[in-house]
């Protein structure tokens, strides 16, 4: 079973049970930028470091690494 969602307007398909982080990784190695513009991506993989923050369905600050991917989600990286 797979889940279809959108990352930065691009259609992505991941296995059921995958996180939003996995979906983003299929599209972009960079999740966002630091305040000085340096590229950033997940570090801890378990919701502690907050490097994976993204806007999911309009809500900013959601941690992609602990958020299950759901059908129809609209994900925006800060790229």
């Amino acid at each position: 079973m797979t889940v279809r969602l959108e990352v930065d307007g691009r259609a992505v398909e991941v296995p059921d049970g995958a996180t939003v982080a996995a979906a983003v990784a299929l599209v972009s190695p960079v999740f966002g930028r630091s305040s000085r513009g340096a590229p950033r991506a997940p570090l801890c993989g378990m919701g502690v470091c907050f490097e994976c923050r993204l806007t999911i369905d309009g809500v900013p600050g959601r941690r992609a690494c602990i958020e299950p991917a759901r059908a129809g989600m609209q994900v925006r990286t800060h790229e």
């Binding site: 982080a21 590229p39 993989g45 690494c65």
Partner: peptide, 27 residues
């Protein structure tokens, strides 16, 4: 996670961290 030059680069994760990401579908 201890800091070292380059540790903020995309692609650098914890060891358990990458395992967690992989289990949840990271390619």
């Amino acid at each position: 996670l201890l800091p070292f030059p380059g540790w903020t680069l995309p692609g650098v994760t914890g060891a358990g961290g990458l395992q967690a990401l992989a289990k949840q579908g990271w390619p």
